[in-house]
Structure formats: structure tokens, C-alpha cells
């Protein structure tokens, strides 16, 4: 009886020690933005490669279904694009002219980098939002492709988040659709020729809207105005589309305006992303 009692005590003690060690290790390691060690990189890279390879047939079927759904809308899209194509040539010429002008101005002012400069790296999503609480996605490019922590990640529709951890061949992206104020982003609302500055502070999953706060400007903000990044922080270049104004209210202190913004990105449909590298340009 006493032997059994001692054995039980030892088991309880071992379990307590393991739990204690795990708690301490977790406290040290769980950070929003952190460097992965060699072991973590190796496991993450190899397993993500396996998951990516296993996903390929499913991805192919998904793409085919998407393709057939889109075929129905093709004629409408074609008509719309045809009318836009004429304007495109005009815009192209204008962009070239402006780019030349910017380059000349940079040379004359001896500026190496502006807030709109960046190099792009394309990547494919391997898996996303595994588990209910994480709001992350893993992509198939890592430090070997030049990706670093903190880089902005976009789709063809706009900003989706930033890189939080980097392996050799994989990276993790923290999405902006985290429904709490973890990452504040400096944004501007484009109203006519004017820019109104604010801070994107949170995401409301229920309404699918971002909240932009800290707007002291008294100008009227129209619904449908574009919201873009300001480029005032290290990670996000200027002019990346975030969404459109849905409604304007007062903040909780009734002092400044608070703006609800509908994201330009559909978070349910992210397959290919682009990482913006501000360092290499």
C-alpha cells in the first residue's frame, strides 16, 4: 500500500514538474514576433513542405471549381474590361511620365528611398487559420527568398497582414482580421484631394469591418472613400489599399471620429499573396 502511495506521489510530482517547465518555457517563447531557432525552422520547413505537397491535388480541384464558377461571369467581365482597356494605355503613359519625374526628383534631391518604394515577392498559401484562435497563415517562402519579420503582406485586392516569423522556406503571416487591437496601423482616408490621418486599431469579425480611430480632422468623410496605408511605419509602404469607409461615428469618448472600414480583401479566399520588401529597393 505504502509502495503504491509513493509511486503515485512520484507520478504527481513528475507531472507537476513537467507542467511547471512547460509554463516557464511557454512564457519565454510565446511572443507575437520572434525568431525561430534551428530546430523550429527545420521542423516547420519540412512539415509545411509535406502539407503543401499533400494539398496540391485538393488545390487543383478547388481551382477548377473556382474557374468554372468564374466562367459564368466572363462575358460581363469582358465588357467591363474592354471599356477599361482603352483607358489603360492612357494611364500607362501617364505612369511612365510620372515615374520618370519621380526618378529625376530623387536624383536631384539625393533620396535613395521613399515611402512608396518596395520590392515584391510572390508566395502561395500552404495552410491558414489552423485552430480557432490564431488568425495566421503559412506561406511557402522564407528567409532564403529574402523575407524578414515585419514585412507587409498583400493580395491583389489589398493589405492582409504582416510576417511574424520566418523559417528558411516558410513564413507565418499574422492577419489584420484579428479581432482585437494588437497591431495598430497608421492609415489615411482619401477624401477628394485631401488625406485624413487615423489609426487602424481593431477588426470586428461580426460586421467584417476595421475600426479607424484617432481622427481629429473635422472634414466630412464620405462613405466609400478609400483607406490606404500612410507609409509612416517601417513595415507598410504608403498607398496600400486597406478598404473603403462604411460609416462614420464618434469614438467611445465622443471626442474624435471613428470610422468603420469594409476590408477590400476577402479573407476566405486567399491563395496567393505578395510580400513587400522595403529593404532591398
Amino acid at each position: 500500500m505504502s509502495k503504491n502511495g509513493n509511486k503515485k506521489k512520484y507520478i504527481v510530482l513528475i507531472i507537476l514538474v513537467i507542467i511547471g517547465t512547460l509554463v516557464v518555457a511557454t512564457t519565454i517563447s510565446v511572443k507575437e514576433k520572434r525568431h525561430l531557432n534551428f530546430f523550429e525552422k527545420a521542423v516547420k520547413d519540412s512539415t509545411t513542405f509535406m502539407v503543401g505537397a499533400a494539398y496540391k491535388p485538393f488545390g487543383f480541384i478547388k481551382d477548377k471549381i473556382k474557374e468554372s464558377n468564374e466562367k459564368n461571369k466572363m462575358y460581363k467581365e469582358y465588357k467591363k474590361l474592354k471599356s477599361m482597356a482603352n483607358k489603360a494605355k492612357m494611364y500607362e503613359a501617364r505612369i511612365k511620365e510620372l515615374e520618370g519625374e519621380v526618378d529625376n526628383l530623387k536624383k536631384s534631391l539625393d533620396i535613395n528611398q521613399t515611402i512608396t518604394d518596395y520590392k515584391t515577392i510572390n508566395a502561395t498559401v500552404v495552410n491558414r487559420n489552423v485552430g480557432a484562435w490564431y488568425n495566421t497563415l503559412n506561406i511557402n517562402k522564407g528567409s532564403k527568398s529574402g523575407i524578414k519579420e515585419g514585412y507587409a503582406v498583400i493580395t491583389d485586392k489589398g493589405l492582409i497582414g504582416k510576417i511574424t516569423s520566418v523559417g528558411n522556406f516558410t513564413s507565418t503571416v499574422k492577419l489584420l482580421s484579428t479581432d482585437e487591437s494588437i497591431n495598430k496601423i497608421s492609415v489615411k482616408i482619401e477624401v477628394d484631394d485631401k488625406s485624413i490621418y487615423g489609426l487602424l486599431s481593431s477588426y470586428n469579425k461580426k460586421n467584417n469591418t476595421y475600426l479607424v480611430e484617432g481622427i481629429s480632422d473635422s472634414s466630412e468623410i464620405k462613405n466609400g472613400s478609400k483607406v490606404v496605408t500612410t507609409g509612416l511605419t517601417d513595415a507598410f509602404p504608403s498607398g496600400i489599399l486597406i478598404g473603403e469607409v462604411k460609416s462614420v461615428t464618434k469614438d467611445r469618448f465622443e471626442l474624435a471620429k471613428a470610422v468603420e472600414v469594409t476590408p477590400s480583401v476577402d479573407y476566405n479566399d486567399i491563395d496567393i499573396v505578395t510580400i513587400l520588401d522595403r529593404d532591398s529597393k
Binding site: T47, T48, V130, G131, N138
Partner: peptide, 19 residues
């Protein structure tokens, strides 16, 4: 642990919860 390393980047949280 594998779940933590591959999917969530939160070492030992899922190790702990799964145990």
C-alpha cells in the same frame, strides 16, 4: 509540439493543452 511548431508558432501551448 508538432502542432505548435508547424501551425501556430506558440511553442508548448498546444503541447500542454493536448497533454
Amino acid at each position: 509540439l508538432l502542432y505548435d511548431l508547424v501551425y501556430t508558432n506558440t511553442p508548448f501551448i498546444n503541447t500542454f493543452t493536448l497533454i
